[in-house]
Write a protein that binds this DNA or RNA. Structure first.
Lengths: 255, 255
DNA sequence: CGCTTTTTTGACCGGTTTCAACACGGGTGG
DNA sequence: CCACCCGTGTTGAAACCGGTCAAAAAAGCG
């Protein structure tokens, strides 16, 4: 009980006393990588603000396998008001630190702070957007493009906060993969062997570097993206042109 | 101006006078198949309640191609409050009839009718759910499964309202495809040739029948689903067992 | 230091894609 | 009424990518 509700949107939607009330009801929760936060079909009793780490959202496929349908990072809000029941499972992708906010506490405040509801609404909308991006990434893409897209997504969502930097990353970015190869594969809907191959390919091409299994450095994400765009895939690679940057690219900094 | 806001959720969230106010501001809009409703990046000035027909939601892929990311049918609510700008384009898949509700009209009412905001919230959540279902369908599926899944989706969302019937459809269902082969292909993320081949396959197997290019009859959707589940794909088909229904299947009627 | 788990690499197979030709359907105008 | 045409849909053949099976290599752990 009693923890600072470190979510920008929520804080700014409430007055001091309201915030205190909410914080009094909330609690800090920590999980180790792999631990389950909640399961599909559970009653949605809490919302969660991610303080650190990455949350893995999964859903069970008709065939029984579970697939990763989304990831949430520091600063994201996993809203609990999405109907009475959870529609997917959540699991700690890495060690996790989050703030659990009981839905009843939020609904108690809903009357006097209509803006609060809006925050959750926005969170749901943001998730929707993320899914759209994701669907776009998966569609009509080669394995190479998917893996490249995975890096872009990772950098976009997990990085900015880590390095105090702006969002023009022409300089090397390094990041910690929140997922194992198998999990990345599930996320990208390819086999883990394919992920491994593409990673190796990218490594050989100098597009990425590994300092350890989960520590990657991306010298230039836009170079990587450029290769992904040009529909590249496995083949003769050792030498490749310096490749001019693509003409247009979503979220590309203004240069 | 002035049109009945034929959306269940909205109607039940408002009092008579509130509803009248909303209806006074709303207008009926009709589009022919192929016409554009709004584009990615447009200012979101209206919400739309789909009265009849199918709306095609598309988004532009980095490669420049536009991909279908979702479909909305009669009874669905396309909410306009999703941030200031539209994040995807909407186009009439078939001839369309919808009710356009200005966002300013809804936000004016938001104060006195908090439930209204909730309706839009729920609509967004429903969309999210739909995307999840969709992602699941696309993943790890053979072409056959995808096409079969497309039919299931179509029947689930577009049909129940048409035929006054319950939702136990062991009896033949026939429907109008809201999309061309190419569009279906885009939706399913396969080539149009593949769609055509699977359709032919299903036809030869007696799982579907065409009365015209866009008029299909599905004698037994669960039989179709059963084949999809058993990972079936092109091969020797002329004779197939009566195939017992699958043990479990999402949304399968209780029998 | 051996153990297990994760990751990489290889060879082969099969379904989709691709490229390309063909058939169908609906409309127009002779 | 039929010939013609164009867009849409179907069918065919070959190439390719990613999946699968299998095994070796590397990393993590007690």
């Amino acid at each position: 009980m009693a923890v600072s509700v470190a979510h920008e949107g929520i804080r700014s939607a409430l007055t001091e006393p309201q915030l205190s009330k909410l914080e009094a009801a909330s609690e800090l929760r920590t999980l180790k990588a792999g631990e389950l936060l909640f399961s599909e079909g559970d009653k949605a009793t809490h919302s969660f603000a991610v303080l650190s780490g990455a949350v893995k959202l999964t859903k069970t496929h008709p065939d029984g396998e579970s697939r990763i349908i989304g990831l949430m990072f520091e600063g994201d809000l996993l809203c609990g008001t999405c109907g009475p029941l959870r529609t997917c499972s959540a699991e700690a992708g890495t060690d996790l630190e989050l703030c659990a906010i009981p839905v009843e506490a939020t609904s108690r405040l809903a009357g006097e702070a209509p803006k609060l509801e809006r925050v959750f609404f926005q969170a749901a909308l943001a998730e929707l957007e993320a899914r759209h991006d994701w669907m776009l990434l998966l569609r009509g893409s080669t394995a190479f493009q998917r893996v490249a897209g995975f890096f872009r997504l990772l950098i976009k969502r997990a990085c900015p906060r880590g390095s105090g930097g702006r969002q023009g990353y022409p300089e090397p970015v390094h990041l910690t993969l929140p997922l194992s190869r198998a999990e990345i594969a599930s996320f990208l809907d390819v086999t883990l062997e394919t992920v491994s191959r593409q990673l190796t390919l990218m490594k050989k091409a100098g597009l990425i570097e590994f300092s350890s299994m989960r520590q990657v450095t991306v010298p230039d994400i836009w170079l990587l993206a450029a290769h992904a765009e040009s529909s590249f895939q496995g083949g003769s690679w050792t030498s490749m042109p310096q490749s001019p940057y693509p003409a247009r690219m979503a979220e590309r900094p203004a240069a």
